[in-house]
């Protein structure tokens, strides 16, 4: 286990709505995420995985319990987080380059320097686009890109300002199997280079084991953590490693636990 937690959840509970109509999304969530750790959260559908993302980033205040980031209780959206959703949410009126540069126009201290040092920032964005194989598409608009390319630019946008925490809400969910597996590799390479703290919400167990240091399994609604599984497979992991017995065993173990929830 990690000794110094960057993100900590203590008995977090969240109810949507009030009174008799209220539904409990998560209840009694406890998590400790270390700095630079890659965490995956899996669970049956509708178990409140996405709610967890919004709780950690402070977009939703918990009904009770505490969320601590950097030793501070979270009460409002925490700044400088990178987020990527299943839907790429690129702005159709901006080119890929301008989309990737968006955080620079918003996040301090880049915001103040952006206008004068645009070339420098563009170079930085270009470097990132090159690592994901989009160098030739920087001047294209999102609707001129394929789904996989849009998701790559989405990842670049989430990472350009080098956030300490990266939240990924099923970012590869809508892609075809080949593109998805390719992007696992891209994601891992980016993480190995920048070592940000990442929280990945997914329903793909192979994806979780491929990318994460620790996999959390959530129960049915109201979601709580029912299993914490360390993944101690060597890095960098490759597609070949997904067929090794150790990898397959882990996936089976997670799958069995989730099946219990459906029973």
């Amino acid at each position: 286990m990690v000794d110094q937690a960057l993100v900590e959840l203590r008995g977090v509970k969240l109810a949507y709505g009030v009174g008799r109509d209220s539904t409990l999304a998560v209840d009694g969530l406890d998590m400790r995420i270390g700095k630079g750790e890659f965490v995956a959260v899996v669970g049956p559908s509708g178990c409140g995985k996405s709610t967890l993302m919004k709780l950690v980033t402070g977009l939703l205040p918990p009904t009770s319990g505490e969320i601590i980031v950097h030793g501070q209780t979270v009460t409002k959206p925490i700044k400088g987080v990178g987020m990527a959703f299943q839907n790429p949410t690129l702005m159709p009126w901006r080119t890929t380059m301008d989309n990737v540069l968006l955080p620079m126009e918003v996040v301090e201290p880049h915001k103040r320097r952006f206008r004068r040092h645009r070339a420098e920032y563009e170079e930085r964005a270009m470097k990132l686009l090159r690592t994901v194989g989009l160098a030739d598409f920087s001047q294209k608009f999102p609707w001129q890109l394929s789904g996989g390319m849009q998701q790559r630019s989405n990842l670049c946008r989430a990472l350009i300002h080098e956030p300490e925490i990266l939240m990924l809400d099923e970012p590869f969910g809508a892609l075809d199997a080949f593109t998805r597996e390719e992007l696992w590799g891209v994601m891992q390479a980016l993480w190995l280079e920048q070592r940000f703290t990442a929280v990945l919400v997914t329903h793909d167990l192979r994806e979780a084991v491929y990318l994460a240091d620790t996999v959390y399994v959530m129960s049915r609604r109201p979601g709580k953590i029912v299993l914490v599984q360390q993944v101690e497979l060597p890095r960098p992991r490759t597609l070949a490693s997904t067929f090794e017995p150790a990898f397959v065993d882990l996936v089976h173990k997670l799958r069995d636990r989730i099946h219990l929830e459906h029973a």
Binding site: T57, L59, P77, G82, F85, M91, V106
Partner: peptide, 25 residues
Amino acid sequence: EPEMRDVMRSLGATRTEILVKVGIP
């Protein structure tokens, strides 16, 4: 899109920034 708003908010954008960068275009 609510996700677009979430992306902006998690970057620390103010209401005015969200309006100028997302809302108006």
